[in-house]
Amino acid sequence: MVTAANAPGPGAGSAVLDGLPPLVDHHCHGVIRYEPDPGTFAAFLTEADRPPAAGTTFFDTQTGFAVRRWCPPLLDLPEHCPPEHYLARRRELGPDETRRRLLTATGIGAYLLDTGLSGDLTGPAETAGAGGGTGHEVVRLEALAERTAAGHRGAGTADAAEEFAGDLARAVRAAADTAVAFKSVAAYRHGLALAPAPPGPDAVRTAARDWLGAGAPRLTDPVLLRHLVWLAVATGRPLQLHTGFGDPDLRLDHADPTLLTDLVRATADTGTDLVLLHCYPYHRQAAYLAGVFPHVYADVGLTLTHVGPRAAAVLAEFLELAPFGKLLFSTDAYGLPELYAVGSALFRSALGEVLGGWTASGAWSAADARRVAAMIAAGTARRVYGLPDDGPPDAER
Rank of each mutant, 00 (worst) to 15 (best):
R218E: 13
V233S: 02
T235F: 15
A195D: 15
V229P: 02
P294F: 15
G308D: 03
A176V: 09
G244M: 08
G191F: 06
A195S: 15
Y297M: 09
T243R: 01
W230T: 03
P196K: 07
L241M: 14
V307K: 00
L259K: 08
R209G: 12
V223G: 00
P199G: 04
A268M: 05
P281T: 04
A232C: 11
P281N: 08
T270H: 10
G200A: 09
Y280L: 11
P199I: 04
A203M: 08
Q240V: 10
V292F: 05
D256I: 04
L194I: 06
A203T: 04
L304M: 09
T272I: 13
A234N: 07
P199D: 02
G200K: 06
H254F: 15
T258D: 12
D269A: 11
P217Y: 00
V292T: 07
V233A: 04
H242Q: 09
V180M: 11
A181F: 13
P222G: 09
V275F: 12
H227C: 07
D273M: 12
P199Y: 00
R251D: 14
A186R: 00
V180N: 03
H242C: 07
T258V: 15
G301M: 07
V180C: 10
P281Q: 05
A287W: 03
G301D: 10
P281D: 08
T267F: 03
Y280H: 14
K183L: 07
P217C: 01
T243E: 05
V223A: 00
H295S: 13
A290Q: 04
L192N: 06
L302I: 14
A175H: 07
T235E: 12
L225K: 03
D177T: 10
V223Y: 08
G236S: 15
V233W: 08
L224E: 01
T178H: 15
W211P: 00
L259I: 12
L212D: 05
V204H: 01
L259N: 05
R284E: 14
L276W: 03
A268P: 05
D247T: 08
L260N: 01
A255M: 04
H283V: 09
A197W: 12
L224N: 01
A290K: 02
V264S: 03
C279E: 05
T303E: 11
R265P: 09
R237I: 12
P201T: 06
R237S: 11
A187T: 04
D221T: 02
L241T: 07
H254C: 15
D299I: 02
L231S: 04
A232T: 09
R284D: 14
P257I: 06
D269V: 09
V204L: 08
L274S: 03
T261H: 13
D269H: 09
P222Y: 05
V275Y: 05
V185M: 06
Q240R: 12
T267C: 10
